[in-house]
């Protein structure tokens, strides 16, 4: 039982990271491999706000999210847009965006290493045990899970019940047709990229409350988020959430019952199964 609850709590944060990535890839068509660095950057900012100004990380999100939004908007406009414009086909854009975001990944990593060094960081925030059904869980984990659920819920409402949300979903389905019905596709793409970055940053801030982080670990999160996105089906928010919870469960189970050093192996085992049996994602339709 405690494995299930811990797994779900971890999965909740993964879900938010993956939803951020699926916005960037599903809508803006940019495979952002620097997404994990975005996350770690937010961890550091939350850490810095908390330790220097004693700003509560939950409040810190209010500062971090707009900052990440603007930063990602600028990245899209100045670094990614030129690639979109020059790409002759989707394959070329994929290769270009992968390489460019690798560049971004290492530059961001370099900045963080120079600023904060290569050590591990954590801080104490709401590290109070809460007892659920006989086992103890950190209050910070529970708060992070609730915050992630609230943010994901708000995103769901935005995408499904507002005009602009509908426009973004239209771009996700087919950018060319979306352009034909007078949706400003470049702007919607930039918005989705920035929003995706902001969501990832929010999950970074939440993660920093209970997770020990360092400047090098972004790529592990990018990898997990990518696998979640593929498992859930590209652009599918519902699928991403379910896949994230599954991954959280699988990782916690492997760490508890076999070895904590095998979490990537667990992730890959799941990924392999999906690739072999449902490459279109858990909820995806068979491609025709």
């Amino acid at each position: 039982m405690s494995v299930i609850i811990s797994g779900l709590l971890l999965g909740g944060t993964y879900a938010l990271i993956a939803v951020g990535l699926t916005m960037q890839y599903g809508v803006s068509r940019i495979m952002n491999l620097a997404n994990g660095e975005n996350l770690v950057f937010a961890c550091f900012v939350a850490f810095w706000l908390f330790t220097t100004f004693a700003i509560n990380p939950i409040l810190g999100i209010v500062l971090i999210v707009p900052l990440a939004f603007v930063l990602n908007w600028l990245i899209y406009t100045y670094a990614m847009r030129p690639l979109v414009d020059r790409a002759k086909n989707r394959g070329q854009l994929e290769v270009d965006s992968i390489l460019a975001t690798f560049g971004l990944l290492f530059i961001l990593q370099g900045i963080m290493k120079l600023t904060f060094g290569g050590g591990y960081f954590n801080y104490n925030f709401l590290a109070v045990p809460v007892t659920i059904m006989g086992s103890n869980y950190g209050l910070n984990r529970i708060v992070a899970f609730i915050a992630a659920a609230v943010i994901a819920g708000a995103l769901y409402l935005f995408l499904n019940h507002t005009r602009y949300g509908t426009a973004i979903r239209a771009v996700a389905v087919d950018p060319v047709s979306a352009g034909l019905v007078a949706i400003d596709v470049p702007r919607a793409s930039a918005f989705a990229f920035a929003l995706g970055g902001a969501l990832t940053a929010a999950s970074g801030a939440l993660l920093s409350t209970f997770y020990t982080f360092n400047a090098d670990m972004g790529i592990i999160f990018t990898m997990k988020a990518l696998i979640i996105v593929i498992m859930g089906g590209v652009g599918d928010v519902r699928g991403a959430v379910l896949a994230a919870l599954l991954l959280g469960l699988a990782e916690t189970a492997v760490a508890t019952f076999i070895d904590p050093g095998l979490t990537i192996a667990a992730t890959y085992a799941l990924f392999m199964l999906v690739l072999l049996f449902r490459p279109q994602g858990i909820f995806g339709k068979r491609p025709s």
């Binding site: 971004l104 990944l105 530059i107």
Partner: peptide, 17 residues
């Protein structure tokens, strides 16, 4: 030695752009 990440990052950027 602390700037190797930058070299890798800039090299990727140079290739793409």
């Amino acid at each position: 030695p602390n700037h190797t990440s930058f070299v890798i990052g800039i090299a990727f950027m140079a290739i793409v752009y």
